[in-house]
Simulated scan of single mutants.
Amino acid sequence: MRNLISLADLTPEQLARIVARAVEFGTGEVADRPLTGRQVGIYFRKSSTRTRTSFWSGATRLGADVITFGPDELQLTTGETVEDTSRVLGQYLDALVVRTNGDVAEMRRLGSSRDLAVVNALSLDEHPTQAIADLATLAERFGELAGRHILVVGEGNSSGAALALAGALTPGLRVTLLSPEGYEVPQDSMDLVDKLSGGQHLVTRVTDPASVEGPVDAVYTSRWQTMGVPKADPNWLSSFEGFGIDREFFERYSGPDTVFLHDLPAVRGQEVSDEVLDGEHSLAWRQAFHKMTAAMAVLEWCVVGEH
């Protein structure tokens, strides 16, 4: 069994294969059910619509039996150690999909059993399967990712951090992270980008919209307050003025083939306007579909290996 806790655990070749497999699953022409006879657990400590449902749907489409756990349904809440929980669940399950407000280090402890594949379905510092869905959406639209430029706008949250790592692992993919000052992708993530790519990446952090060179191939945003974690500054919203994606903002950086991406859920009228989210350039709904194909590709890779 193999974990997928961070994109940093993958080689560029492995990430490319997983993304290609997600695109392949998206065609609807794959009849393989490689998880037949396997058991997948889904353990979410936080609310979720797309990620939870996409993993359930993806696992069952691949033939697995699925059990779901709510935030208070494992004995972790009564004092059992993470390692003991992992050791026991490894005797019952082949994979455990986890969403938590904890960090990657906590999830690695849960992935300590060699009999249990653990998948990070969102932690405080990274959302790796979301980035795989994002890359699958772009690969489906554009083909090769090399030479493409993604502008990621808004808070430097777990989705932004994952896209930064994806940029480090995808040669030729340019990722510009545009955030208000004080809300950037953490420096630890950028240090990891440098390490993964040997300093050869095309990932940059900026705080001034005027410094972004367009046109870009995709304008990407997320909701500004993620995972229900309140911000320290009660007036934080004022820092995001000028970072909402309306038609004027989108057209400032777009060419004829530029697409809009959003990992959803969206706060309409805040980080994105209805006109952009529902517009002809939006791939947000196809992107949501690829959360399921990404889940399928990741579960297959973790449980049965290379396709």
Results as ranks from 00 to 15, higher is better:
residue 128 P to A: 12
residue 1 M to C: 03
residue 82 V to H: 06
residue 34 P to K: 09
residue 203 V to A: 00
residue 101 N to F: 09
residue 295 A to G: 15
residue 244 G to F: 04
residue 169 L to Y: 10
residue 146 A to Q: 14
residue 298 V to G: 03
residue 80 E to D: 14
residue 200 Q to K: 14
residue 284 A to M: 02
residue 248 E to M: 13
residue 155 E to Q: 03
residue 12 P to H: 00
residue 19 V to F: 03
residue 107 M to E: 13
residue 142 F to D: 10
residue 78 T to C: 11
residue 114 R to Y: 00
residue 221 T to E: 01
residue 159 S to N: 04
residue 238 S to R: 08
residue 177 L to I: 03
residue 245 I to M: 02
residue 5 I to M: 04
residue 217 D to W: 13
residue 189 S to P: 00
residue 65 D to E: 11
residue 247 R to N: 03
residue 180 P to N: 14
residue 270 Q to F: 10
residue 199 G to D: 03
residue 113 S to C: 08
residue 67 I to S: 00
residue 31 A to C: 07
residue 179 S to A: 11
residue 35 L to N: 12
residue 227 M to L: 12
residue 25 F to W: 09
residue 83 E to D: 13
residue 29 E to R: 10
residue 108 R to T: 10
residue 41 G to A: 12
residue 236 W to D: 02
residue 133 A to I: 11
residue 61 R to H: 00
residue 169 L to N: 04
residue 300 E to R: 15
residue 126 E to Q: 11
residue 238 S to Q: 12
residue 11 T to R: 09
residue 248 E to K: 13
residue 247 R to L: 13
residue 164 A to D: 08
residue 277 L to N: 07
residue 198 G to S: 03
residue 209 P to R: 13
residue 155 E to P: 02
residue 259 V to P: 05
residue 192 L to F: 07
residue 143 G to Q: 10
residue 18 I to A: 11
residue 41 G to T: 04
residue 292 M to S: 01
residue 48 S to I: 07
residue 47 S to N: 14
residue 118 V to C: 06
residue 8 A to F: 02
residue 193 V to C: 10
residue 10 L to Y: 12
residue 294 A to I: 00
residue 55 F to N: 07
residue 75 Q to I: 01
residue 240 F to S: 08
residue 49 T to Y: 05
residue 230 P to N: 03
residue 301 W to D: 06
residue 225 Q to I: 11
residue 47 S to Q: 12
residue 237 L to R: 14
residue 88 V to T: 15
residue 95 A to S: 10
residue 242 G to E: 05
residue 220 Y to L: 01
residue 244 G to Q: 14
residue 83 E to S: 15
residue 165 L to V: 15
residue 307 H to T: 02
